[in-house]
């Protein structure tokens, strides 16, 4: 709080003071008061006025300066009231009271929304459990009654399943309070279960899947990693090139501080200008626009899951040649759990 600004604000009182002061001087002069008396009177009068101003200024200055500073410095400025002493002057008390009420009603409003989001999330999770029952039933039926259904039915079922998973993990990635559990996970197991899920797509598209057993463990949530890997491999299948030796390959590199899982394909690749944006929400890029079934959500969700788990994920690619997506796991389990 600046004194000059304060004075500007008090301009009206200053003008009244000048007018009253001039009138008084004129009055005193017209009564032929001695000049010494007028000077003494003026000094007392001016001192009185200034003291009044200064006392008022200092009473307010402490409170407002702190208010302004704390609002600027706090990263959650709505908590500012908690950092201030109660003001000792009337205006301040009004402000304090009003801020308190505003805060409270805002928090109530946020709580309502939080509850709504929470309930919605619960409902979606429950719905996902429900929808999985008929999907399971249908899958079993198509295996049991091969005469009624063929590979195409299973393909469509697999698509339904994968969209359901995407919704589930989207909900989880947006509101992950306690949905994940980090423990040592064998990468071979995760790779095998993702590979098995996509086995028939590899065959149908004549893609060779290359992966060696490594017996490497990383600290992660197995279910989340399986989803992430599933998204990456789905993309590799979707954007493969129809060439003779089309492949998808996983490799694992164990370094001192980190373990890197790389998924490489020799598919259509990603245009250079699209690479920095492939993890953005709803981004489909050149490749996505060319195929109708791209939602731009898979990699976005994967990236936010990786962020939550403390893994980094990055992509290297050359249009028309290859795409390599790598996930880096830190080998220090304590580091991983900090989030």
């Amino acid at each position: 709080m600046k004194f000059s600004s304060y004075l500007k604000d008090k301009a009206y009182s200053f003008i009244i003071f000048i007018v009253v002061f001039t009138l008084l001087i004129l009055l005193l002069t017209s009564f032929k008061t001695s000049s010494q008396a007028i000077i003494a009177f003026s000094l007392i009068f001016i001192t009185f006025y200034l003291t009044l101003l200064l006392i008022d200024f200092f009473r307010k200055r402490n409170y407002y300066t702190q208010l302004i500073q704390n609002v600027e410095n706090l990263d959650k400025s709505y908590l500012v009231l908690e950092t201030l002493n109660k003001p000792t002057f009337y205006e301040g008390l009004i402000l304090d009271r009003a801020l308190y009420q505003i805060n409270k009603s805002m928090l109530e409003q946020i709580r309502i929304f939080e509850n709504q989001v929470h309930n919605f999330k619960d409902y979606i999770e429950m719905w996902i459990h429900e929808i999985k029952i008929p999907v399971t039933s249908l899958t079993l039926m198509s295996y049991n009654h091969k005469e009624l259904s063929d590979q195409k039915t299973l393909e469509q079922l697999k698509k339904i399943e994968s969209y359901i998973e995407q919704v589930l993990f989207y909900v989880r990635s947006e509101n992950a309070e306690n949905d994940y559990l980090i423990k040592p996970v064998n990468l071979d197991q995760i790779i095998a279960s993702v590979a098995l899920k996509n086995k028939n797509d590899f065959f149908a598209n004549k893609i060779e899947f290359i992966s060696k057993k490594n017996n490497v463990q990383v600290y992660t949530d197995a279910k989340w990693l399986e989803f992430i890997l599933g998204q990456i491999i789905n993309n590799s299948i979707k954007y493969h090139r129809k060439i003779k030796n089309s492949y998808i390959k996983t490799t694992i590199n164990v370094e001192e501080a980190k373990t890197i899982l790389t998924i490489e394909d020799n598919g259509i690749g990603i245009a250079e200008h699209d690479i920095p944006r492939i993890f953005l929400k709803s981004f489909t890029g050149e490749n996505g626009r060319a195929s109708s079934s791209s939602t731009g959500m898979g990699l976005y969700i994967s990236k936010s899951l990786c962020d939550k788990l403390g893994h980094s994920i990055y992509v290297e690619s050359k249009k028309g040649q290859y795409t390599r997506i790598s996930i880096e796991f830190s080998n220090n389990k304590y580091y991983e759990v900090t989030k």
């Binding site: 999985k132 029952i133 399971t136 949530d221 197995a222 279910k223």
Partner: peptide, 8 residues
Amino acid sequence: SCNSETDE
């Protein structure tokens, strides 16, 4: 149909 690591 509960596929969270915690359940497992």
